[in-house]
Design a protein around this nucleic acid. Structure first.
Length: 201
DNA sequence: GGTAAGATCAGC
DNA sequence: CTGATCTTACCT
């Protein structure tokens, strides 16, 4: 797993598990977005948190691949990324949506009784909520069996792609990927702060 | 030490 | 479409 585009495709169909014991909740990743790094790196990406170099929030993105990069969005939600790329080079894949396989009851208890099954982990904030991923999980090694959040890679079926959601920079880049024919995939919404279509990136 | 912006979500 | 709610970065 090296560049973010390859990593993004590879993560589709992978199993994400979260829980102290043998996986309280497990889910299949169905939608992701690739994010690059600084302007002078191999994948310059003005929409990435790492674009302006390492800082207190994004340091883990510059570390080894396979770690979890969590950040708080709009002061309310937590979003999760899988770090990729070699050490010293920032890149990550944002987990945007998943299909809950095991622990549906627990996920619904966390999200709310009225939430439809397909929407339990739809959207990056909702995904973390359903799996109880918090800022405490920042930097977690996703391939360590003793971690609270774990990842099991699989083979990816048919993949579709399109522009990323909600980014104001490089808004026309087709760096979002999802599994075709999946009801859990979230709807595309362009950022209101993004320039007119075709002008960005 | 102040401030503005934000890889979101739910509710009207 | 709007508001909630807060962390961080980037000024001055």
């Amino acid at each position: 797993m090296v560049d973010p585009l390859t990593a993004a495709r590879r993560l589709l169909g992978a199993q994400l598990e979260a829980g102290e014991a043998a996986g309280e909740v497990s889910a299949t990743i169905v939608e992701v977005e690739a994010y690059g790094g600084p302007h002078d790196g191999p994948w310059p990406d003005p929409a990435s948190h790492s674009f302006r170099g390492p800082n207190g929030r994004n340091v883990v993105m510059f570390g080894p691949a396979g770690r979890l990069y969590t950040y708080r969005s709009h002061g309310i939600h937590v979003c999760a990324n899988v770090v990729c790329g070699p050490v010293g080079t920032a890149a990550a894949v944002l987990l945007r949506a998943a299909a809950i396989e095991e622990g549906v009851g627990l996920a619904r208890a966390r999200r709310g009784a009225a939430v439809r099954g397909r929407a339990l982990a739809r959207g990056p904030g909702n995904l973390c909520s359903a799996l109880a991923i918090t800022m405490d999980d920042y930097g977690t090694d996703l391939f360590d069996p003793s971690s609270r959040v774990r990842l099991r890679l699989g083979a990816a079926p048919a993949v579709a792609d399109g522009p990323r959601v909600g980014v104001s920079q490089a808004a026309d880049r087709a760096w979002r990927f999802w599994l075709a024919d999946r009801p859990e995939v979230s709807a595309y919404r362009r950022s209101p702060r993004a320039p007119a279509h075709g002008t960005s990136d």
